[in-house]
Write a protein that binds this DNA or RNA. Structure first.
Lengths: 130, 130
DNA sequence: CTTCTTATTGATAATGATTGTCAACATCAC
DNA sequence: GTGATGTTGACAATCATTATCAATAAGAAG
């Protein structure tokens, strides 16, 4: 039986308040600063549950850290991520879906899945660098 | 000044002998089994050098481990990876390159890069599962 | 070939994210 | 309200990766 706890809600709310990918550690720090004494282990568990349930997307940063972001559930999509500030935009990638399937089939691979993420500099960060 | 050592060559050779993505730990075990007493730290350093020099590709496994594979240098390409046995095929992805650029530009993002990997079951593993 | 400089090695300690443990606690069906 | 049990959280444990640093060996110079 799954129980609803204020800790899980707090993690979910904190995640949805972010518009960028954040690590479990960062989210834990945010919750600590807000005064909500949610344990680190609980943050990890809540994020894992969210990701498993489709309420969040996860990816590995270049440093090997696991990052999470709230996402629109039930819909397959990918991300356009600013490598400077982390701002993230959900994007559709129908052409890529087709291409991935075709390439997998052409090589005899079955049950294809794919990891597709685009990194760049968002408009604000582009301006800041130039 | 960069010096050539037999340890670096051993790591490079061991990596090229693999046709799948392997972790630094696995490669270290292989070298140990071969009788070559190459240190773990050296394996990590050699792999980092290879990746930086374009002689190897790296990606993060779902468990957060860093995996490496020898690759054809100087050419941009992606991978089709068996999620069961790890066998890897290099693939071209011109349509995706164009798509990534277009999507980034449409959202005002500059200097786009992308992570594109396709996972599936290779012919052998597909047969084994069914 | 010998010597000298210094990049490299490797055993080990340190780091840091993530997961396991388990007693105390809180949720929800009844 | 009450009890069975899912959940929490402080802390220990794990595991990949990185830093440390004395000992070694590659390569330049003579």
């Amino acid at each position: 039986m799954r129980r609803n706890t204020w800790q899980r809600d707090a993690v979910k709310a904190a995640l949805e308040a972010q518009d960028a990918f954040v690590s479990a550690q960062q989210l834990h720090a945010v919750l600590r600063d807000e005064g909500t004494g949610v344990g680190l282990a609980t943050v990890y568990r809540a994020l894992a549950d969210l990701a498993a349930g489709g309420g969040a997307d996860s990816l590995q940063s270049a440093e090997g850290e696991a990052l999470y972001r709230a996402c629109t559930p039930g819909q397959h999509h990918h991300h356009l991520i600013c490598r400077n500030c982390g701002v993230t935009v959900e994007i559709e990638a129908d052409p890529v879906e087709q291409w991935a399937k075709a390439v997998a089939a052409a090589n005899g691979f079955t049950r294809p899945e794919h990891v597709v993420d685009v990194f760049g500099l968002c408009p604000a960060c582009s301006a800041a660098v130039s």
